[in-house]
Lab assay of single mutants.
Amino acid sequence: MDVFMKGLSKAKEGVVAAAEKTKQGVAEAAGKTKEGVLYVGSKTKEGVVHGVATVAEKTKEQVTNVGGAVVTGVTAVAQKTVEGAGSIAAATGFVKKDQLGKNEEGAPQEGILEDMPVDPDNEAYEMPSEEGYQDYEPEA
Rank of each mutant, 00 (worst) to 15 (best):
G84E: 06
Q79W: 06
A124D: 14
Q134R: 12
T75E: 03
V74I: 03
K6Q: 02
E105Q: 11
G93M: 03
P128D: 12
V55M: 14
V95P: 06
M5R: 14
G84D: 03
E104M: 14
K32E: 00
V82S: 04
G106A: 09
E137M: 05
L113Q: 15
N103W: 13
A107V: 07
V55G: 01
P120T: 11
G67M: 14
K45T: 09
Q99E: 06
D121C: 08
S129W: 04
K80V: 08
T72P: 02
Q99P: 02
K102Q: 02
E57I: 10
I112L: 05
T54N: 09
G7A: 04
T92K: 02
L8S: 00
K12E: 00
N65E: 08
A85N: 02
L113A: 12
Y125I: 13
D121I: 09
M127A: 03
V74E: 01
A76W: 14
K58F: 09
T64W: 07
A90P: 03
G7R: 15
A78W: 15
Y125V: 13
K21F: 12
E130Y: 10
K10E: 01
T92M: 04
L113N: 02
G31Y: 15
M5A: 02
G25A: 15
D115Q: 08
S42P: 01
E105C: 03
P138V: 09
G132T: 13
V95T: 11
K80W: 13
G14F: 11
K80C: 05
M127K: 10
S42K: 13
E114N: 12
G73S: 14
G51S: 03
H50G: 04
T92S: 07
T33L: 08
T81S: 05
D2V: 00
A56S: 13
G106Q: 05
T81F: 14
A19E: 00
Q109C: 07
E130W: 10
K23S: 04
K6W: 03
T44E: 00
D121M: 08
Q79K: 10
G106Y: 11
E123G: 10
Q134L: 10
A11N: 00
P138T: 06
Y125S: 06
P128R: 10
E57Y: 11
Q79S: 11
E28N: 02
V37S: 01
A17P: 00
